[in-house]
C-alpha cells in the first residue's frame, strides 16, 4: 500500500541502499546493508549507539565514500544531484554551526549555494519557530534552537526527501510534540522522511516503518504494525485450559501464557467475556496485549554489541526472551475479585 497518491506538488522520491558497506581499517562500520525508504511515510532508522547509523546516513548523502555498494535518492547518487537542496534536505548534527555566525546568516550561506532568495530564509525561521533568535550568534543557541535551525536548513530548498539524524535530541517535551506533528504534516505532503534514533520508544509514535540495524548489519525492517505483531488479548481465569477450549469452539485461538494467563488471538474483549460467561468461568483480568517494543528492540540489537566488548553485553535481566506483554489498558476491574 504505497501512499504518495493524492498529494499536490511533491512527487515521491525513494531512498535506496544496496549492499552498502564501509570499512575503516579492519573495522566494518556498515556491512552489506540494503533497505528502501518509501515516499509519504516516516521511516525510523534505529540502532544502538555505534551501530553505524550516522555512517550510513553520511554515505546516503555522499559525505562518506562507501567501500562497496551504492546509495541512491530518487534513482541518483547524491553526488550527481544538480540541485540537491530541492531533492534532499538533511540535518546531521546539531553542532554544525559556526558559533560566530548568526542563525539567519548560516541559512543565507546555504541559500546562496542553492540559489535561493533570502525571503525563503525568513520563511523557514518563522516556520521552525526561531525568528526571534535569527540574528543572534549561533554560539549562544540552546540545543533545541540548534535542532530547529538544523531543520530549517534542511527544509530550505523544499526537498522531497528529508534525512534527520537524531532530530529530537535536546528538544523539550513540547518541542518533541511539535516535531512529531511537523514531520507528520510533511509526510502527508508526500515527502520521504528518514529519522534516525537510538531509542525505539522515542520514535514509536512518529514512524510508519522501521529499519533496525546493529553492528552495521540489518536486523529487522518493515512496517511498525508488523513489528508490533498481531494484537491480542490477555485473559486470566480459574481454568485457562477450559476457557481455551470454549474459545476454540467460537473459532478463536488461544495459547497459555506466563503465570496462568491465556493469550487470545483477538481484540474482541466482549467476545472473550461472553464465551467465558457461557462456560461459567470467572474473568479475573482482561486486557490488550501489546508487544513491548523496548524489550524487542533490546533483544534485536543488544545481543553482542561490538562497542561493549565480548561477554560484556548490557545486563538485560528484565528483558525476557520473547515479547514481554506490556501492562496496559486493563479494561476490566475484576482483578483479584475472588480473593
Amino acid at each position: 500500500m504505497t501512499t504518495a497518491q493524492t498529494t499536490t506538488s511533491t512527487r515521491g522520491a525513494r531512498i535506496e541502499a544496496r549492499d552498502l558497506t564501509k570499512t575503516f581499517g579492519a573495522f566494518k562500520a556498515v556491512d552489506t546493508l540494503s533497505f528502501e525508504v518509501e515516499p509519504g511515510r516516516i521511516t525510523g532508522f534505529l540502532g544502538p549507539n555505534g551501530a553505524g547509523k550516522t555512517t550510513t546516513l553520511r554515505m546516503l548523502l555522499g559525505l562518506i565514500h562507501p567501500t562497496a555498494g551504492s546509495a541512491t535518492i530518487d534513482g541518483q547518487k547524491y553526488h550527481d544531484l544538480d540541485h540537491p537542496q530541492s531533492i534532499v534536505g538533511s540535518a546531521l548534527e546539531a553542532t554544525n554551526f559556526h558559533p560566530g555566525r548568526s542563525g539567519r546568516d548560516h541559512l543565507r550561506v546555504l541559500a546562496a549555494a542553492g540559489g535561493l532568495p533570502d525571503s525563503r530564509v525568513d520563511e523557514l525561521l518563522e516556520l521552525t519557530g526561531i525568528p526571534a533568535a535569527a540574528r543572534k550568534r549561533a554560539g549562544e543557541y540552546s540545543m533545541g534552537m540548534r535542532q530547529r535551525l538544523g531543520l530549517a536548513a534542511a527544509l530550505l530548498g523544499d526537498p522531497r526527501v528529508l534525512i534527520l539524524d537524531e532530530p529530537s535530541n535536546g528538544l523539550d517535551p513540547e518541542g518533541i510534540r511539535w516535531l512529531r506533528g511537523f514531520l507528520r504534516h510533511l509526510s502527508n505532503e508526500g515527502k520521504t522522511i528518514l529519522v534516525s534514533s537510538h531509542l525505539l520508544q522515542e520514535v514509536e509514535q512518529t514512524v510508519d516503518d522501521v529499519v533496525i540495524i546493529a553492528n552495521g548489519r540489518m536486523v529487522r525492517s518493515g512496517a511498525m504494525s508488523e513489528l508490533r505483531g498481531a494484537p491480542s488479548t490477555i485473559v486470566r481465569t480459574s481454568d485457562p485450559a477450559q476457557l481455551a477450549g470454549a474459545l476454540r469452539v467460537a473459532d478463536v485461538l488461544a495459547q497459555p501464557g506466563d503465570d496462568g494467563e491465556l493469550i487470545v488471538e483477538t481484540t474482541d474483549k466482549r467476545l472473550v467475556g461472553d464465551v467465558a460467561l457461557r462456560a461459567g468461568l470467572p474473568i479475573w483480568e482482561l486486557r490488550d496485549r501489546k508487544a513491548d517494543l523496548e524489550a524487542l528492540f533490546f533483544e534485536l540489537t543488544e545481543g553482542t554489541n561490538r562497542n561493549l566488548g565480548d561477554g560484556n553485553a548490557v545486563p538485560t535481566a528484565t528483558a525476557p526472551t520473547t515479547h514481554a506483554p506490556h501492562e496496559t489498558d486493563a479494561i476490566s476491574g475484576q482483578e483479584g475479585a475472588n480473593e
Partner: peptide, 18 residues
C-alpha cells in the same frame, strides 16, 4: 580550517556535493 573545526564542511558539501 574553520569549516573543519565547526564541522560546517558537512553543510558545504551537502549544498554543493560536487
Amino acid at each position: 580550517g574553520s569549516e573543519y573545526r565547526h564541522k560546517t564542511i558537512t553543510s558545504t558539501f551537502l549544498s554543493t556535493p560536487k
